[in-house]
Design a protein around this nucleic acid. Structure first.
Lengths: 168, 168
DNA sequence: GCGATATTGCAACATTGTAGCATTTGCATC
DNA sequence: GATGCAAATGCTACAATGTTGCAATATCGC
């Protein structure tokens, strides 16, 4: 998994009040048990500005020296989604893994940018899928997912030829 | 696999002009060998009005009594995509399989509707993702994928309670 | 019909996710 | 601080979806 390990993430104790709310409190408030993995996962997501995959989360946990099991991680994420603390977005591109991002209280929705080059997914804050579209009769709209594909700033510059764009 | 040559597979002369172009000709024109699986896959896609997954294609092939291998099917589809005869769209929802649809010569793009109930994907012809959006500096747009989630006409009516909407 | 080589078909493996179940842990209570 | 019990964990297995390598086969130009 081409992942340059450890991105900006990590919440140093000093900046604990930067995050929306205390992870432990959020978990406890929902009647869930405050466990190692849940707290860590929630904190990592709070510190991240883009959706993360199981794999990336796992790497972060490992980097932080937090013992965890693959299945437990899946279950912790499932729980967060179930409790409406996070939301699951479909992997776009050839990367068929789920990604997770914190759900904002304001129900804010935004589009995502998928870099076909490095596979990274980035939130496009200012871009709300304006789908007041007229669906054919009978279809019930629940939500719209908009994914923009292309090259991110990092990849855009070093992109040499079309061969570099093999699907990923 | 005793194949009585000149198998005249489908393509009943009468409906030959229904399909965009003869599958065999399309394949040959691109320098590819005209093989059982490629022709059949292309014809099935031509006859379908919605993107199909490997699985669905495989079922169609089986139904038409066309011997095929799982890997061969994958490769035939890869080839079609490579030759710009088809395009691959990411499975949305929890269904992480690719789906394929014929690429129209006019480069027409449209959005897709994913039924969260039955998992079916349908083309929304009249709906082109209007993403003349202003991407942040540095991002290069290549294409936009718009997926509308909800319930299709078939599922919409019989949808009883919220329990029926478990992710799928 | 023949030969070169593009495709196939098979088996093995990779990735991502789930299910079942015994063991451990968090936490309310004593 | 000790205790009990359900909630979580951490295994191991398994399922779904793809991919890779390679020998056997079928296409197609001659």
């Amino acid at each position: 998994m081409t992942q340059p390990e450890a991105r900006q993430t990590h919440t140093a104790p000093a900046e604990a009040h930067d995050v929306p709310a205390d992870a432990r409190a959020l978990i406890a408030a929902r009647g869930g048990r405050v466990t190692r993995t849940r707290v860590a996962v929630l904190e990592i997501l709070q510190a991240s500005d883009r959706p993360m995959s199981h794999d990336e989360l796992g790497a972060e946990l490992a980097a932080a020296d937090i013992a965890h099991d693959r299945v437990t991680l899946y279950r912790a994420l499932d729980w967060l989604v179930e409790q409406a603390l996070a939301r699951r977005i479909a992997g776009s591109g050839s990367d068929r893994a789920w990604r997770f991002e914190l759900l904002r209280a304001d129900g804010h929705r935004h589009a995502h940018f998928h870099c076909d080059c490095c596979g990274q997914v980035i939130c496009l804050e200012g871009l709300e899928p304006a789908v007041a579209v007229a669906l054919p009769a009978g279809f019930q709209l629940e939500r719209a997912e908009l994914v923009i594909h292309g090259a991110c700033p990092d990849c855009g510059v070093q992109r040499a030829g079309p061969a570099a764009r093999r699907r990923r």
